[in-house]
Write a protein that binds this DNA or RNA. Sequence first.
DNA 1: TTCGGCGCTACACTATCAGTAGCACCAGTA
DNA 2: TACTGGTGCTACTGATAGTGTAGCGCCGAA
Lengths: 123, 123
Amino acid sequence: MAIPRPGKPVRGSQSGAPIMAVFDLLGRRWAMGIIWNLSRGAASFRALQGYCETISPSILNSRLKDLREAGLIELVSDGYQLTAMGEKLFQLLKPFGDWAIHWAKSVSDDDPARWDNYRTRKD
Amino acid sequence: MAIPRPGKPVRGSQSGAPIMAVFDLLGRRWAMGIIWNLSRGAASFRALQGYCETISPSILNSRLKDLREAGLIELVSDGYQLTAMGEKLFQLLKPFGDWAIHWAKSVSDDDPARWDNYRTRKD
DNA sequence: TTCGGCGCTACACTATCAGTAGCACCAGTA
DNA sequence: TACTGGTGCTACTGATAGTGTAGCGCCGAA
């Protein structure tokens, strides 16, 4: 348990605090975006690729594996969907939607060019 | 605005949706952990290094820069602290603490070894 | 039996992060 | 005046994670 497994890259919470483990899991690229998109209901691999626009299939696959192993999503007949635990997580994620809008406005009011840091292509 | 700046790696939300921009920002390693730790009050650079245990100073510095540019933290006399916007974000992050405990329990009840994915050293 | 869409993999390239050393700066102190 | 120890931060190397693209094997429809 305390020993890094050979052949597996060491990437995990090291403090042992669950919250840090969660931040590590959700801090992987696209992880929160996938959960967000699955909240509309089950989605196929290709559909998720469409929602996440620029995600590469290899990373999508690896992220889906992470989230499945974490018990947040599951494979069903019509693709992937949130588990009960994943659904609860989404409920926590939901308020970020409104906050994001206020935040985006505050950033672009303050210095429109800085918004480039977060959207660098399209629009 | 739509053009990737030369010399700067392209990493940003590409859909233009604020929520995806937020997920991109918070999806960078240690970003949420830093905000979480700053919720106890202002902290110095070295203190944050201590809280985040294994973070390297170069990444800490770069993450602090990201968060400062995003208006979530600010530099004050006794180190870094959350801005009003950052404090609001923390309020959204807070419930994750309880959820994380339930989640950690469900993962380790189900298959204790799998918990290794999230904590690979120490404990 | 071809065709197209699907989930997914392989691989080369690039970006991000870890780990470590150490610099410039400042306060205390002797 | 130097000296010492602590601080914020930078510079580098090498490792890991993510991108972009091509394409495999499978399956259902025509």
